[in-house]
């Protein structure tokens, strides 16, 4: 079906097996390795379309590996974390990973994330005039945002925030990353701004703000702008 190649870096044999079987079942090609040491060579040799990296590798930090990769490639990186260790996950995202998933994970969730991240990669390669996400539409040139075909009334900061979310669709963004990009350097710890504006945005675009479908909260980590145009 597709021709995507996924590289798995995971030392736990049962998780590795589960991933390999899943990918085979869903017609992805995959290669896998167990350590940081062999991962880089494998990456250069196979040039995969997406990376899945376990954070707790036996021979060292997954973060180091992510940084190494980021110096030479922009491919999507999804991090696997054994515990819900928020600090580790945030550090990995800040190091350049695009998304994360914690064990135990559901295969459906993982596949959804993989597809979303691959789609983002394609979108970045084929630049079009508009970005559509559900009932939201953004014109790239004019930067106007429409909701259900109507122009969306937003304050300047709400607009900047939503624009940043749309441009980083299906990517987990840490609080710090968002604050730095939308509010500027020096605002990285001003969480109250972020929470207030996310709340306000949700009121404008979500049907039910306690069950958001666009702006998802990643507790203790950040937010993720979800877009599932199948």
């Amino acid at each position: 079906m597709n021709n995507y190649l996924i590289q798995i870096v995971e030392d736990d044999p049962s998780v590795k097996k589960l991933l390999e079987i899943t990918f085979k079942e869903y017609q992805f090609k995959s290669v896998s390795c167990e350590s940081k040491k062999s991962a880089f060579g494998m990456f250069l040799g196979h040039n995969p379309d997406l990376l899945i990296v376990d954070l707790g590798l036996p021979d060292g930090d997954g973060k180091e590996f992510i940084k190494q990769i980021r110096e030479i490639s922009k491919l999507p990186i999804i991090v696997l974390s054994a515990r819900h260790d928020e600090r580790e996950i945030v550090a990995a995202l800040d190091a350049g990973a695009d998304d994360y998933i914690t064990k135990p994970f559901s295969v459906n969730e993982l596949l959804a994330r993989i597809r979303a991240n691959l789609r983002r990669k394609i979108n970045e390669e084929n630049i079009s005039d508009t970005i559509t996400c559900g009932a939201l539409e953004m014109n790239i040139a004019s930067r106007d945002i429409f909701f259900k075909k109507e122009p969306l009334k937003l304050t300047p900061i709400e607009y900047e925030l939503l624009k940043y979310f749309i441009l980083n669709t299906n990517k987990t963004l840490t609080h710090k990353q968002i604050l730095k990009e939308v509010w500027g350097v020096g605002y990285q710890n001003e969480m109250q701004y972020l929470r207030t504006y996310v709340n306000a945005l949700r009121k404008k675009i979500e049907q039910n703000s306690t069950r958001p479908t666009y702006i998802k909260t990643e507790s203790g980590i950040g937010y993720r702008f979800n877009c599932n145009n199948e």
């Binding site: 109250q192 996310v198 709340n199 703000s209 507790s219």
Partner: peptide, 12 residues
């Protein structure tokens, strides 16, 4: 700073 709407959403 916490937003209860957000918290309930995550809890759900």
């Amino acid at each position: 700073w916490c937003d209860f709407e957000d918290i309930v959403g995550v809890a759900l």
